[in-house]
């Protein structure tokens, strides 16, 4: 990969900007693995593996382990999210982008429209960004940030059911969130549904990252590893 990038840099006179600070990068990958673990275990909580057909119940703990992994990954996800929100405050300007999209700015929407046209093959060249492009920001804000918030609240509300009425999870989350959604079964259902929303987001996210890495004017995937945004041309950025 490094060789490839080196080759590119010679041809296109790339310049580099430090965009993703180390905590953001570490968070990104921990978060990615937590989500994978959550989706896989979550799916098997909803639709369990074939029954373990022999032995005493105390000899096995299949659902127990699946649920343990789910809860552990869930806590990592929650703590990561809280940390990431904190970093949005103390980190560099790029770390704020997905939390506070500039939706009141006309430029934001103009640029977003440009990105839509780019993806619709209506323009030949995308704009150039050191951070995320506006479309990516909006998608991340709506699907990822709010999706995560929903999953954290609903997840802790469901966890609080097992932890009991005296637990902080129950007091802070289950007590109001379950009646708000109807009943426990509804919370399960929507928790499950938003998992699929996040999976759909992940598919788009990965596809677009790969595509942009190849077709756009800046590096994407490698940036989330090294932190450095590399540009493929010398023209000024658009953000």
């Amino acid at each position: 990969m490094a060789d490839q990038m080196a080759d590119h840099s010679i041809e296109t006179k790339q310049t580099a900007v430090y965009v993703y600070e180390a905590p953001v990068r570490i968070w990104h990958w921990i978060n990615a693995f937590a989500i994978i673990a959550l989706c896989v275990t979550g799916y098997f909580i909803g639709s369990p593996l074939p029954s373990v057909s022999s032995g005493e119940a105390s000899d096995h703990y299949v659902m127990g382990y699946i649920r343990f992994v789910h809860f552990a990954a869930g806590y990592i996800f929650v703590i990561g999210f809280v940390f990431r929100a904190y970093w949005a405050i103390v980190g560099n300007s790029h770390s704020k982008e997905i939390f506070l999209p500039r939706i009141f700015s006309k430029d934001f929407w103009d640029e977003l429209w440009h990105e839509v046209k780019w993806y619709s093959f209506l323009v030949n060249e995308p704009k150039k960004y050191t951070g995320h492009n506006p479309l990516a920001i909006l998608a991340m804000h709506l699907m990822f940030v709010w999706g995560s918030i929903f999953m954290i609240i609903s997840g802790l509300a469901l966890y609080g059911e097992g932890a009991g009425m005296g637990s902080w999870q129950y007091q802070l989350f289950s007590s109001w969130f379950i009646p708000l959604m109807g009943q426990s079964q509804d919370v399960h259902t929507y928790h499950h549904l938003v998992m699929w929303l996040i999976i759909v987001f992940a598919i788009i996210h990965i596809y677009v990252a790969v595509r942009e890495d190849i077709m756009s004017r800046q590096s994407i995937i490698s940036s989330m590893i090294s932190g450095w945004r590399l540009f493929k041309d010398n023209r000024p950025t658009d953000d």
Partner: peptide, 21 residues
């Protein structure tokens, strides 16, 4: 204040992954 599941005597089979199919 508690779910039927929380105090169900079949709960160990749930945790073990032993289900009626």
């Amino acid at each position: 204040s508690q779910r039927i599941h929380d105090k169900c005597y079949r709960r160990p089979h749930f945790d073990a992954g032993q289900f009626v199919e």
